[in-house]
Nucleic acid binder design. Structure first.
Lengths: 130, 130
DNA sequence: ATAAACCTTAACCTTAGCTCTAAGTCAATA
DNA sequence: TATTGACTTAGAGCTAAGGTTAAGGTTTAT
């Protein structure tokens, strides 16, 4: 029932430095402490961290994540707002992905073009089959 | 038949500073000069710039782009290598996109979860329909 | 002759996200 | 009891990437 910073670090592959840094920056508030003052992470903290990572992995900045966390701290009144935030983030990422795929199309065309040039070059220089 | 740095800047929305910077970093070599020493970009330069942007937009670092450009400078012998480079880049980006979509799935689930919580909250607090 | 557009070199800036150091506390172990 | 090791804090420093600007100068058009 609860983990040390090291255990969380191992579970998440986030270094203790970063875990403290995230907490300091307000991304992961309410982490409780043992009697000795050591951080003591609950299952809930671990879940939060999961969401944070997920947002981070989809390109949300720590600043934006903090905004989200701050809203959460205000309680259920902000549920709708938070929901909208996630929806918008999702939309943004989807757009980025789409844009990326469009650019990838261009890369693909370049590849075709380069491949053709290479084939031609092979024929020219090495006279054909190999 | 050729453009000044300003014209290229307008065509590409890349600032003159950045155009010079790219050139200095070797991303866009061979830009010729007028008699007065001013840069004079050819259609080919413009095309190169297009490829550069495309690679950049798909997340290739300037360093990697330079590596690609350097290979090009070595002539047709490196055609195959360049081709492979593009193919690998494409594969990388596709993987990233896929990973992104996986993470987006998680976000979607969170949204469902938040929406449910919000609905419940609405019923609780405001007694139902609105 | 004055301003606009360009040139070069090289220093500087910004953002983002860590990463580490120093100095100290606490608990278990030799 | 002394040492080791896991933790604590505040705050400085680092890295990477990609610009951006300043200073001082030349050329070309009005």
């Amino acid at each position: 029932m609860g983990y040390t910073i090291k255990q969380i670090s191992e579970k998440t592959s986030i270094s203790p430095y970063v875990l403290r840094y995230y907490e300091k920056e307000g991304l992961l508030p309410h982490v409780s402490r043992s009697d000795n003052g050591f951080r003591f992470y609950s299952e809930e903290d671990l879940e939060w961290l999961g969401l944070i990572c997920c947002l981070k992995n989809t390109g949300m900045s720590l600043k934006q994540i903090k905004a989200f966390v701050d809203l959460s701290a205000e309680g259920k009144d902000t549920l709708k707002q938070r929901c909208e935030m996630l929806v918008e983030h999702k939309r943004n990422v989807e757009n980025q992905v789409q844009e990326m795929q469009k650019q990838l199309e261009k890369v693909s065309r370049k590849i075709v073009c380069f491949t053709a040039q290479y084939d031609e070059y092979r024929n020219d220089v090495q006279g054909g089959s190999r």
